[in-house]
């Protein structure tokens, strides 16, 4: 059974001019899979992620995560669902700058009211995995962007959620930090056999995925599997982006 299945999902933004952001999106993600979502600006990637993250409500269709439809829950249950079943990694890290690194990581556990000993054990394990012990007592402004994103990944992983949602995790990082963060994310998700859904613009980041979905104008356009050769996968992604337009090179969709 897939951990995430998105069934005929549509989203229309009402307004003076109604705008269809998503149109009949249908796909499924298996447990332990690392899936990327790519597409030109305005294609509806972030809308899709927001719908799955329960941050936004779909107009039609449904999202099933771990056998439950979170959109049918009430506000409180939905909040608890996000806390327990979902992990988030954002482009702007979204760390609380009033907290230290370790406090940021254990925040979801604290909100749950977990016993201290258990929290410390989990913290210790996750830190070993992500190699962030030296910065645990630092404040968020004392560490680099890559370290911040690793902290955010630790925070997303510590609850062992069913699904980790990443929104442009490398968008604010230089190339070295990007590579570092992507390696961490893919290794950590493999180790914890966590399922990851990542929205990205960055073909390098996308090449770490097992599978990449391409969206254009709110519709699923194509799908690609990594296979054995990451280099070849990267090239295929670049070609696909060129075909889609927008993307990283902003090439014309019409090729002569």
């Amino acid at each position: 059974m897939p951990i995430l299945s998105v069934k005929h999902l549509s989203k229309i933004y009402e307004g003076k001019v109604a705008f269809q952001a998503l149109n009949n999106i249908h796909f499924a993600v298996e447990k332990g899979e690392f899936v990327g979502i790519m597409g030109p600006s305005g294609s509806g990637k972030t809308t899709l992620l927001n719908l799955i993250a329960t941050i936004d409500q779909p107009t039609a269709g449904e999202v099933i995560i771990g056998g439950r439809n979170p959109h049918l829950l009430n506000r409180t249950e939905m909040a608890l669902f996000r806390r327990r079943e979902l992990g988030f990694v954002f482009q702007h890290f979204n760390l609380l700058d009033t907290l230290t690194v370790e406090e940021n990581i254990v925040l979801p556990l604290t909100m749950e009211g977990m016993p201290l000993v258990e929290m410390e054990a989990k913290l210790k394990r996750i830190c070993g995995q992500l190699a962030i012990e030296p910065i645990l007592h630092k404040r968020t402004y004392e560490i680099s962007g890559g370290q911040m994103q690793r902290t955010a990944i630790a925070r997303a992983l510590i609850q062992k959620p069913s699904l980790i949602l990443a929104d442009e995790p490398t968008g604010n990082l230089d190339s070295k930090a990007s590579k570092d963060v992507m390696q961490t994310l893919s290794a950590a998700s493999r180790e914890a056999s966590a399922t990851v859904l990542m929205v990205t613009h960055d073909p390098v980041a996308a090449s770490y995925c097992d599978r990449v979905l391409f969206i254009k104008d709110g519709q699923l356009y194509n799908e690609m599997y990594c296979g054995d050769n990451r280099q070849a996968f990267f090239q295929k992604i670049i070609d696909m982006l060129a075909l889609l337009g927008g993307g990283s090179h902003d090439l014309s969709t019409i090729r002569f």
């Binding site: 993250a53 941050i55 506000r75 409180t76 909040a79 608890l80 669902f81 996000r82 806390r83 327990r84 979902l86 988030f88 954002f90 979204n94 760390l95 609380l96 925040l107 979801p108 909100m111 925070r155």
Partner: peptide, 11 residues
């Protein structure tokens, strides 16, 4: 930010 991570209205 906190509410994205899951915070109930009561909290």
């Amino acid at each position: 930010t906190i509410s994205r991570l899951g915070m109930t209205d009561r909290e």
